[in-house]
Simulated assay, not measured.
Amino acid sequence: MEKRGGSGGSQIFENLGTFLRKCIFSVLSVGPIPNHIAFIMDGNRRFAKKQNLIEGAGHKVGYLALMSMLRYSYELGVKYVTIYAFSIENFKRRPEEVQSVMDLMQEKIEQLINEESILNHFGVRVHFIGNLKLLSAPVRLAAERAMLVTACNSKAVLSICVAYTSTNEIMHAVEESCVKKWDEIRELKASGVDCGLTKLEGYEKGEAQDLINLTDIEKHLYMAVAPDPDILIRTSGETRLSNFLLWQSQYCYLYSPSVLWPEIGFWHLLWAVLNFQRNHFYLEKKKKQL
C-alpha cells in the first residue's frame, strides 16, 4: 500500500483554506471592501520573550505573519497595504539590536523580489517610504532594487515605512514645497513674466500668506503614492499611533487586537474588515464634511 507523504496532506489543507477564504471573501464583497489597510506590527520582541526565543527570533516569526496578512489582503481585493517596519526612533535602540533588524530586513527584501514571491504572484509594486538616507548602504541598495524590480507591477501596492516617522514626513513635505515654490519664483523672475510677480515679490517680503497650501504639502508627502488608509491595525492592544500616518489617518477605522504581531491571523483581519463595513457610512459622512 502506498504511503502518502506529509507534504500532500499539507497541500490539501492549504487548498481547502484557500477555498474557504474565497467563500468568505465573496460574502464580504457584498459590502464595501477597504482600498487601503495599514499595519503597525507591534509585539515582535515581546513575542520572543513570551516564547523564550533568542533575540531577533520574534521578528522572523513576525515576517511569516506579514506574508499571511499580505496574502489575505490581496486575496480580498485590497489594492494598497502599508506596513510600519522601522521607525526613526528605533535607531535609538541598542546598536546590536538595530544591526540585527537591518540584517534581517535586507534578507527579507531580497526574498520579496524573488520570482516566486508573493509580490510577483499578486502583481504588487513595492515602495519604501521614509528617510532612506538613514538606512545602511546594503539595506538601502536592496530597497532600491526591490522598487526597480517591481516597478512594472500594477495590480496592487505595498508601501514599507522604514526610517519613518509622520513628523519627519510632514517636515520633509513642507521643505520640498518651499524649495519648489522658490524655484518657481526664480524662474518667473528670470523670464520676466508679470503674471503673479507682484504676489511673489510680496511673498519675499513676508506679505503673501497663501503661496503654499495643503495641496502643495500633500503632493510632497512620502505617502503620496497611496490614498489615505481605510483601516489601521495595530497589534498588542496598543491604541497609540506612534507617529505613524498622522496626516493620513484622520478618518480611518482603528483596530487594536490584543494579540502580538506574530500571533495575528485571518480572523483578526476579517473582524477588522467587518467593523470597517459596519462603520463605513459614518466614516464616509465625516469625510464629506471636510
Rank of each mutant, 00 (worst) to 15 (best):
G58I: 08
F19Y: 14
R140P: 08
P138V: 08
K108Y: 09
H36Y: 08
A272V: 13
N120L: 05
H59L: 04
P257A: 12
L141T: 06
G123T: 06
L119W: 05
L119H: 05
E204Y: 02
S242E: 01
A142I: 07
I264R: 01
N44V: 01
S154P: 03
S117V: 05
F91D: 02
N15K: 09
E107V: 01
R186W: 02
F19M: 13
K22D: 15
I264K: 01
M171C: 12
F122W: 13
H268M: 00
T215Y: 08
N44R: 02
Y282Q: 08
I109P: 02
E116C: 01
E187R: 13
I118C: 05
F266I: 10
K155D: 11
A163K: 07
S191C: 14
L270V: 14
G8N: 12
E2K: 08
L148F: 14
I129L: 10
L104D: 02
S136C: 11
Y63V: 15
C161Q: 04
F128W: 00
H127Q: 00
M105V: 06
S117G: 09
A142E: 02
F13D: 06
G9F: 14
G31R: 02
F13M: 10
G5L: 13
R4P: 09
H121D: 07
L283M: 09
D228T: 04
F47V: 11
I217S: 05
F25A: 02
I233N: 02
F13K: 11
N120D: 12
L245W: 01
G8H: 11
E96W: 00
N213T: 07
R240K: 10
S26W: 08
M69W: 07
I83H: 06
M69D: 05
N131G: 03
L269P: 05
G206D: 06
E169T: 03
G123W: 04
N153C: 09
S236H: 13
V259S: 10
L254W: 11
K22E: 11
F19E: 12
Y253F: 11
N275Y: 01
Y251G: 06
K60G: 00
V30C: 04
D228I: 03
E107D: 02
V174K: 03
F19P: 02
R71S: 10
N279K: 13
E218K: 07
K92Q: 03
A48G: 13
L158C: 05
S159N: 14
